[in-house]
Amino acid sequence: MSATTGEYIKTTPAIKDRSVEAGTEKSRGGDHIMDKDLIRIRTLDKEDIVRILDQAESFYEILDRPIRKVPALRGKIVVNLFFEPSTRTRTSFELAAKTLSADVVNIATKVSSAVKGESIKDTALTLKSLGANIIIVRHSHPGVPELISKQGDFKVINAGDGWGEHPTQSLLDLFTIRRKMGSLKDLHVTIMGDITHSRVARSNIYALTKMGAHVHIVAPPTLVPACLEKLGVKVHYHIEEVMEYTDILYLLRIQMERLEQSFFPSLREYAQFFGVNAKRLEQFSKEVMVMHPGPINRGVEISHDVADGMDTYIEEQVRNGVVVRMAILYLISREGAGRHDVA
């Protein structure tokens, strides 16, 4: 345990327990996520997920402190490498890293050399030489986080890779659900919208099924990818079919691009079948928790009365995003967790 972390334990007793726990877990040998990167939920164990959520829980109060700063990542260089425009996720990661006292560098596509034709590999090698400890990457192509990870001993966090995965979004969603519902087991979660092109849907399908929830998909057939049910979910084309048992209604953003590609005839018709408004929400049997990864399209997948209503947890999701990302950054950067000492 480093001096930095020791100092940190003095200020937050809650972390102490976690550190002890982490120490014992290291000896159990199957220390998956912390071995190096956080790239996919698909390859995580349930225990890894629980550990991140517990860690986030112990960080929760930090955001309410008058001075939101703890020294856990002091002296570490965290790079936000975003090949795709993002405000929400990048800002969330930046605040998480800064709250942990890391030095944060933001690289966005417009200023990066990616546009000048430098390869992903060379960008990663450059960041390695500059001493990056953690690279947070977003790219429009699946598998890019793995490609970057191969180039050095730094840790990689996937902030969204094409249609692939968005693990930190999924973890903050689990955290938000667990805070409200106590447990994820046996909950019925309905994910509605464009599944084919959604990394959020993929990560959440893996995460929720691992945690023992029942996952239902509601989408037009044009936006349901091949063989989806083999991932352990139930596919529906009509929202009415899930109204009886849904506990959580997770809405996905519809992108205008899909309209141009004729996945559905019009936004109007999409909203008619898959848009959620207060009236439709009343038809559900249970009190439904409405979630959305943002940014929302008011009037398309979600109406203003639901977006601003009492059942909606969108703002909590955003706040929890910072806490969960702090937990991930903290766990991933601990000493002795590098790939080199796994063998």
Binding site: G164, R202, A226
Partner: peptide, 10 residues
């Protein structure tokens, strides 16, 4: 286009 493409989002 099949289960693997769906699994990894390709």
């Amino acid at each position: 286009e099949g289960l693997v493409a769906t699994t990894i989002g390709m």
